[in-house]
Design a protein around this nucleic acid. Structure first.
Lengths: 205, 205
DNA sequence: CTATAAAATGAACAATGTTCAAAAAATAGT
DNA sequence: ACTATTTTTTGAACATTGTTCATTTTATAG
């Protein structure tokens, strides 16, 4: 039955049209400022249609959150060419920060907003596969560093979490306007400068 | 005119009654789940009265955010008895984390939510004095550490921001459910374990 | 006791996420 | 080609939110 196939294809198309419209508005005017009505308007469909394809707003947010991780994966691609694990770790941090500051709304959605996690909790899925995957990449890089004799005396998982926390914290403070609120001497470069302090520190370790 | 004095006092009382009711509900059921109607009900006043004392919801959130910093200051009190700056720095981090995890909603409000910063931006006040004060305490402690020969080759402000980012990032990931989503071996102790990794690292620096 | 000022009220508004019976369009059966 | 059935789309309607403001209630002054 070729018709059923075409229908399935059309369903998928409309679903990703909704997501595409949603993302455009999110980037343009922020996630909180974007309503279902806005999204429906943007793609010239009715409100009701959106609810046919997504059970609620959280479902849209979760789907876009997943897409964000795919994008982050794209940013990470260039890491595969770097053989030295310590160098790879350093660049990974830079890329993570770059991604966060170039896609603030998406970053917020992926690592800060409650919506995607609530979607998981509310019985839709058991595990945060996107997060586990990304953290796994970091962890295995740190593991390689340790195998080469770096980070002596440290423990893999807490150490990896510490590094994640560090870059995440910088991005959060920046995105949520706390860094600019604190009257720094060089507010424009604080995140990079601050990350360099970390690199200087692990350079000794 | 003693009556005017009493009236001013009563006005202050009612204002702090509103704040007190709001905070109770925030802690009980979360900031996002608390409405103005809830607050009014809680203290047996009408919705309108709340708006006589606060221009909008952001004003309430900002005021409570300020109160949160006062509370954090209380937590920090015991630091004054610690003479050694490195030890003071280490304990400061522990206390910060303790405060964050014991007062998750308040911490979120102070360091993550947009509301208090929007209140400042929207012409109510120029500077984030609470944040500047808290960051100043950290910065001066780090400065003392450097004066004693620690953190050689580092720069005060970016280094301080890095430390702040580290503890903030851990607390954020924990509060916003990202740490538990990542399938750690010891999820209950990850924040403390992770902070200890940092202490181990600066122990060498 | 009356007039004025201050304080408190809650009905009303616009905007939000969400639901669902009805309409419109597409497909299948003859 | 026409009809019946299924699928898709619709938007009016609902509950809940933050917010406003004319009105009522209460307190103070004369």
């Amino acid at each position: 039955m070729a018709i059923a196939d075409r229908k399935a294809r059309e369903k998928e198309n409309l679903k990703s049209l909704i997501l595409q419209g949603a993302k455009k508005l999110f980037v343009e005017k922020g996630i909180e400022q974007t309503t279902i009505r806005n999204i429906a308007d943007e793609i010239d469909y009715s409100i009701g249609t959106v609810y046919v394809y997504f059970k609620d707003k959280n479902a849209i947010l979760h789907e876009l959150h997943s897409g964000g991780f795919a994008e982050l994966g794209g940013y990470f691609k260039e890491l595969y060419t770097i053989a030295d694990p310590m160098e790879r770790l350093r660049i990974m941090g830079r890329i993570y920060i770059k991604f966060a500051l170039e896609n603030t709304e998406m970053y917020d959605l992926m690592f800060n907003l409650k919506a995607p996690m609530e979607f998981l909790t509310k019985g839709n899925q058991e595990e945060w596969n996107e997060g586990k995957g990304a953290f796994g990449v970091l962890k295995s890089t740190v593991e390689h560093c340790m195998e080469q004799g770096h980070f002596k005396g440290h423990t893999l998982e807490p150490l990896s979490f510490m590094i994640w926390s560090l870059v995440h914290g910088m991005c959060c403070l920046e995105i949520r306007q706390r860094s600019k609120g604190v009257n720094l001497a060089n507010p424009e470069t604080i995140v990079t400068d601050s990350y360099n302090e970390f690199l200087l520190m692990i350079g000794k370790a």
